[in-house]
Design a protein around this nucleic acid. Structure first.
Lengths: 144, 144
DNA sequence: GTTCTTGGTTGCATAGTACAACTCCAGGAG
DNA sequence: CTCCTGGAGTTGTACTATGCAACCAAGAAC
């Protein structure tokens, strides 16, 4: 395979993947859309942050994040705490229920990936992971 | 990197990619959404097919395809020809304009991918392409 | 204090999607 | 032939996700 052809293939396969991901988003875990999942995931990692941070990180409009956050709060998966240092700011935190649901969905997704990748030789898995990281890192804010 | 860790990484990076693709879909090419693009692409490859085939192929409801097709026809990118053998059937074909737009968008996407992958060693490109094909082939209908 | 900036919410519009009910037509049963 | 069945598409309805613009509230700058 030539390098130019490889680029074509990568483009085509990434498109296929994006289309499938879009189509199946929300069907796997009706409780937690892909966006909600990543929002919760970031709250878990960061230990709480502002809605504006989430919007910037995910390239979403703040209104969209506001509504997602409202939905997650209604579902009691997160809670808002007004920042004592700046009363405009709401610091978002996972609730115990949120942590639990996030862990469930993560585990379910993990199982699906494990099954899908079960036949892969370890060396291929490692290289594939490395390539994806490199691919996604392109144009990303450093350490963002 | 251990294999288990590699699976985690693949999962996380695929999620990142899916989220970004979703966010940026339609912003790059306002004229042609990701779904429309793949529909046109399939018409190009297949040389014309039925709306039902497109729906099955992309796991979309036939009503969704019907509206997408209507929009593409309004934009004069495709045309419908009633099948002379079965008057229920509409065979969809690209118009010259459709072929032109599809080629433009493809070229634009190709340029973006080329730029993004410009620094990659050829061997890595080929392996990455191969891995993506293998990944997407999982659970796909044979030769579908 | 007045003005500017920032975090967040809400009103409005749009795209994409699914489900269900419908029409149209082809093909077989009688 | 007529009637039924089934497949291809369309349309009505609803819902979700999203963005933009306008707004409100609270600090910050002057």
């Amino acid at each position: 395979m030539q390098a130019a052809e490889a680029v074509e293939t990568i483009q085509r396969e990434m498109t296929v993947f994006a289309r499938r991901a879009r189509a199946s988003a929300g069907r796997l875990h009706p409780e937690l859309s892909l966006v909600s999942y990543t929002l919760l995931g970031h709250l878990e990692e960061s230990g709480g942050c502002r809605a504006t941070d989430l919007a910037a990180l995910h390239a979403l409009d703040k209104s969209t994040v506001s509504r997602q956050v409202a939905a997650l709060e209604r579902a009691a998966l997160i809670e808002r705490r007004v920042d004592p240092e700046d009363h405009r700011v709401q610091l978002l935190h996972l609730t115990d229920a949120g942590r639990r649901i996030l862990a469930q969905v993560t585990e379910s997704r993990r199982a699906a990936f494990r099954e899908r990748l079960a036949e892969w030789p370890p060396g291929d898995l490692e290289r594939f992971a490395e390539y994806l990281v490199r691919y996604n890192a392109w144009g990303a804010p450093p350490a963002g």
